[in-house]
Design a protein around this nucleic acid. Structure first.
Lengths: 249, 249
DNA sequence: CGTGTTATTGACCAACATCAAACTTAGTGG
DNA sequence: CCACTAAGTTTGATGTTGGTCAATAACACG
């Protein structure tokens, strides 16, 4: 638990996210703004929620970068998803009491904790908010399917390029990142754990992609030099993200 | 479209399924029984819904065995999930208009088509039914995560054993299959497409598992000869299925 | 400036893929 | 009821992607 100060407007982050996947009337937006929320800072590499726990609140990511993952008996780690500000990475805990995986911060992050009770009340009073949140968890599932197809049937190079495409589009769809690229706060080991690859192989494929002139990296900033090329390399089709037409990248 | 006759009680199948993951008061069960439902027969290897479509109804699987899948540009196929009677494999279409994958029958199957409009009405009138269905789609996502961990980090043998464990538990949890095993209506090619393996390799691993005396096959019947052994071979922990304690296998 | 983390490189290896053919089984029509 | 066919399973030989191990080079941070 750290103590930095931030001036982000947590509720607006959430609203912007939900509006990237659906339309919300003003009454619903207003109701979302009244959600009680306790801000908490989380250090890098520490868990927000761990496998086996029964949380009584959901996290809204305000600043930072987090992932969901599971450690397998042989010590291997599988990362299931990455989350950016505006996401509620453990929204599922609202209807799935016990966590079957963990939620960890990849960089120092700021989250807002929202009691389940407040969310229940909101979803009962506003069916449109319930539908938007349900839809969000369904898109979550669609992303898992897409990753599954990647790990099951795509080459290492396609998988890495695909991940970059997905993150770029998701960042842009909520107004984060820049047109030329985005902050990719991931080590190569973490990319490997997400894509089912070894660190060494991730490194080699990354060199390939740089040699192909589709991306370049400056520190943690991933610059997209050739978007059509990256999309082609990753066999990327954003349909599965189910974004609202109004935010089409 | 075939024409066999069946005497299954579709609504009871659905109720039994939902009760395997939650508790439903009698009023809710009664409301479910009134859901309008058009029975349809589907031939093996034909699609119930295809990628790109915008269905206006959901399917309830009454008899048979279906899967969700996607064909990749290089011709490869990734199967995302298998569904058994009582499942609503495309419940997600209620909040995700366009299908990002297809739903196909693996054997001749019987489904009940339920209009989205009827489901919307039901979920608005009965928050408990909405919660149960939302929960069902969240478990769906949990299964994707588990498969992702398998394809990403587990060996071929673990993945196959894990799949058998999952199907056995799911069949049993809704009162299908037998204590000694269950009907596995899958070709080795289909198992490969689900697990990210080649047909040849599936065949070899299957021979291993038979040699290890954990399973045996008689035609399409998969007999579990050593359940603890199969669980160990698959590194299987049923937590992710989020079954209600009352149906614990 | 150290010190620990991350990136990169090289040598070697294994799991699983691919290709091709033979064998089995289950349907189908005569 | 049998021959014929197509689908599925099994086997062998060979190839490749990506893993493992281990060392070195770059960084980032206190």
């Amino acid at each position: 638990v750290l103590n930095k100060t931030y001036s982000a407007a947590p509720h607006e982050r959430l609203i912007r996210k939900l509006e990237s996947i659906t339309d919300l009337p003003e009454a619903e937006r207003e109701a979302l703004r009244e959600l009680p929320l306790t801000v908490r800072m989380v250090a890098a590499d520490s868990d927000l929620v761990s496998e086996g726990q029964r949380p009584s609140e959901c996290c809204l990511l305000i600043e930072g970068f987090v992932c969901r993952y599971k450690i397998l008996p042989d010590g291997g780690r599988q990362i299931f998803s990455f989350h950016i500000p505006g996401d509620m990475p453990d929204l599922q805990s609202l209807h799935l009491r016990v966590m079957d995986h963990s939620l960890g911060a990849l960089v120092p992050s700021q989250v807002g904790m929202i009691p389940h009770s407040a969310l229940y009340r909101l979803t009962e009073r506003f069916p449109k908010i319930a539908a938007a949140m349900w839809r969000d968890t369904l898109i979550d599932a669609a992303i898992f399917r897409e990753w599954l197809a990647g790990v099951g049937r795509r080459s290492a190079k396609q998988r890495i390029a695909h991940l970059f495409c997905e993150l770029y589009v998701r960042f842009r769809s909520v107004g984060l990142g820049e047109a030329r690229g985005f902050e990719l706060a991931l080590t190569q080991a973490e990319m490997g754990d997400a894509l089912g690859l070894s660190t060494v192989h991730v490194n080699r494929v990354l060199q390939d992609l740089r040699a192909d002139k589709v991306i370049s990296t400056r520190g943690r900033f991933l610059q997209v030099d050739d978007w059509p090329g990256l999309v082609a390399a990753g066999d990327f089709d954003p349909t599965y993200l189910h974004l609202d037409p109004k935010v089409a990248i």
